[in-house]
Design a protein around this nucleic acid. Structure first.
Lengths: 198, 198
DNA sequence: GTATCCGGTCAACGCCTGTAGAGTCAGGTC
DNA sequence: GACCTGACTCTACAGGCGTTGACCGGATAC
């Protein structure tokens, strides 16, 4: 059960404990959201006293911030076709590894104001990046719609647990969603608007 | 401020008080979600003692149930084209009147288990209805994707407050989303799958 | 070896929550 | 009139929460 921890420097020990607390916090936040997550449960989940959690992270809000901290956004490719592929791959491959990374943030998106803000900011940044790449009119709105679609599918699958989405493979979803996304990116050369001026 | 309430039968009075409580509850649930909504706040919002809320609704869970109670689903049209229009209109026109009706449920969808279940059930019912109408293979998954898309756009607009979505008119959104939805319903006679066997 | 630091625990505080029971007072019934 | 029913309030409780300060003991520094 335990790793052989005979001689361990203090700093090392602290680092590991902090990581264990963060892991437990992410788990609770991801499962039950911000409000229902108690410091006591996080402490219990990492085999530590509740007071230590406070000592390390200050308060609950800060613990949440650290738990949903995420490496800065990767640059999006500046080619519309590649962008489409990337967006599709997000809903595909990243759908499975999502639990570890952003589930804590996703779970509280609607109920914890700071989570809402963080999610909105993250999506806004991606919308701005994507809309700079997309050709045609209303690029911002089209990008936002794409992000909203990915959000809807991810949460429908991972949080709501909608049957057909849950059972489908990432490949199925990617394949069916491709025309939708391409209609919004305009990648196959189609007119991205509903009514064409051509 | 107050309606002229001189002679009012007891039953009538009770009915109105209950309605006032429910309205206040919906407001709180819609704004801050289940966990952050307190009986005391609901009572205060309807000018009533907290104990009365308990007396009328039993407990907080039951109050929530009554607050998110909704008239049974309307039948969906059995023609794919009309169905597409209806789905598009949901994200369009119903987007504005949404706050009154289903915001309380939407808000707590990810954090209150019973809300999750209720939302999943509602979406599942609609998926079943829609998939019975849609032609082609994988109708269930395609329907589920459509519902997830509508969910994503609605929440992206109303709950997350994503800028471009918030600023867009329902007509814009409907127009841009039309090709996406049609690609999934297969309504313009297109092959609903990504890779065609034609 | 001794003094210091610091990872970690213990016990407790004050607050707010959902909830319960006794009580009050006006409307309806006879 | 007397009586009762029921809408509504008051007061209080028990439990769980985030948070705090005093404390302990082994690794570290000198």
């Amino acid at each position: 059960m335990e790793d052989a921890n005979q001689p361990m420097t203090r700093a090392e020990r602290r680092r590991r404990t902090e990581a264990r607390i963060l892991a437990a916090a992410r788990e609770r936040f991801a499962e039950v959201g911000y409000d229902r997550t108690t410091i006591r449960a996080v402490a219990g989940g990492s085999g530590v006293d509740p007071a230590l959690v406070m000592q390390y992270f200050g308060d609950k809000k800060e613990l949440f911030r650290r738990a949903v901290e995420v490496p800065p956004d990767e640059e999006l490719p500046d080619d519309p076709v590649q962008l489409t592929e990337l967006l599709l791959s997000i809903v595909g491959v990243k759908l499975s590894e999502l639990p570890q990374t952003s589930l804590p943030l996703l779970r509280s998106t609607f109920t914890h104001p700071e989570a809402t803000e963080r999610m909105r900011d993250a999506m806004t940044r991606q919308v701005e990046q994507a809309s700079a790449v997309l050709p045609g009119e209303e690029a911002e709105l089209r990008s936002a719609l794409i992000l909203a679609i990915l959000f809807g599918v991810s949460t429908g699958r991972n949080l709501i647990g909608l049957g057909p989405l849950r059972d489908a493979t990432p490949e199925q979803i990617t394949r069916l969603l491709r025309p939708c996304i391409e209609a919004l990116t305009g990648t196959p050369g189609r007119d991205p608007q509903g009514r064409s001026e051509a």
